[in-house]
Design a protein around this nucleic acid. Structure first.
Lengths: 149, 149
DNA sequence: AGCTAGTCGTTAGCCGGCTAACGTACCCCA
DNA sequence: TGGGGTACGTTAGCCGGCTAACGACTAGCT
């Protein structure tokens, strides 16, 4: 009982489905709002910068950037001074999504914790952080946790 | 501060990475252990049954079953009495993974909540269930949650 | 008995995520 | 000044997940 693993899995699945549905209402897909957020905050980032910022690999950003470029959300352009770099710049369409998408994410954030007391929210965050810290050392590389408690 | 949304996202990402690494040690991939678990519990299930049991769509099960069949973990065979049905049956290799994989999942489950008190675990589960219930009505269909608190 | 409606699995195609391999461009040092 | 190492983006290919369209089979009603 109280299987945190299963609960975490189910919660995340529901979260993904809900978030994707929310983003679709604005012509976006699940992670694309994060790319936009990063560019709203600072336009003209490179795929590599974005990848590090979003905690994702570069190829993932490249593929998403290609789709988002096709959808007219951003443009690719090579940096003048360093020809290796690629600058991802928002289009007017990409900039226009800022307010509605931020409102949507805010709504999701509130819906998520609806009916929870402040105390519950804080405790949830604290405990999740602990779980996260438990996971991080295991995530990188072929680590064996059979020696852990 | 205490952004439950971001925390949930990061936790799940770490969880997926860790779980995938754990399953790879047994020649499996992320969700394949769930398929095996379902067949350990009751062999010869159909893709549709499995999909419902795992809360996943049928095509997802079909694709996984194809890969797992290629890897010699299970076999496909048509039902004699109803030729629409396909029976997924474990091979010896698939059966042999039962103990080691269950132990691995158990290790993951324990590592996940390492350093947490029983109280913290129970509270975490309770709160996650609330969050999950908040999400479920939003997940199905083009629902608008702008009216929610 | 035959036609229709419903059930079931498969295929095609998309998305986000990853690793590995590749090609180009820069940079620094001999 | 040239060459080797390094940084960067792209491509290819895999996995889990989804929806939509398709095809085969059963079942049910007339």
């Amino acid at each position: 009982m109280s299987d945190v693993l299963a609960l975490l899995t189910r919660t995340n699945k529901a979260l993904r489905a809900t978030a994707d549905a929310a983003m679709r209402r604005h012509g976006l897909r699940l992670g694309q709002n994060l790319v936009l957020e990063a560019l709203w905050e600072k336009d003209g980032r490179t795929p590599g910068e974005l990848a590090e910022y979003l905690n994702v690999t570069t190829p993932t950003v490249v593929k998403m950037a290609t789709r988002m470029s096709t959808n007219g959300l951003l443009t690719r352009s090579r940096d003048d001074t360093d020809n290796r770099l690629v600058r991802l710049c928002l289009t007017a369409k990409g900039r226009a999504l800022r307010d509605p998408v931020m409102a949507e994410v805010d709504g999701l954030r509130r819906a998520l914790t609806a009916g929870l007391t402040d105390r519950e929210c804080r405790d949830l965050a604290t405990t999740l952080e602990k779980v996260l810290r438990n996971l991080i050392p295991l995530g990188a590389g072929p680590h064996d946790y059979s020696d852990q408690v």
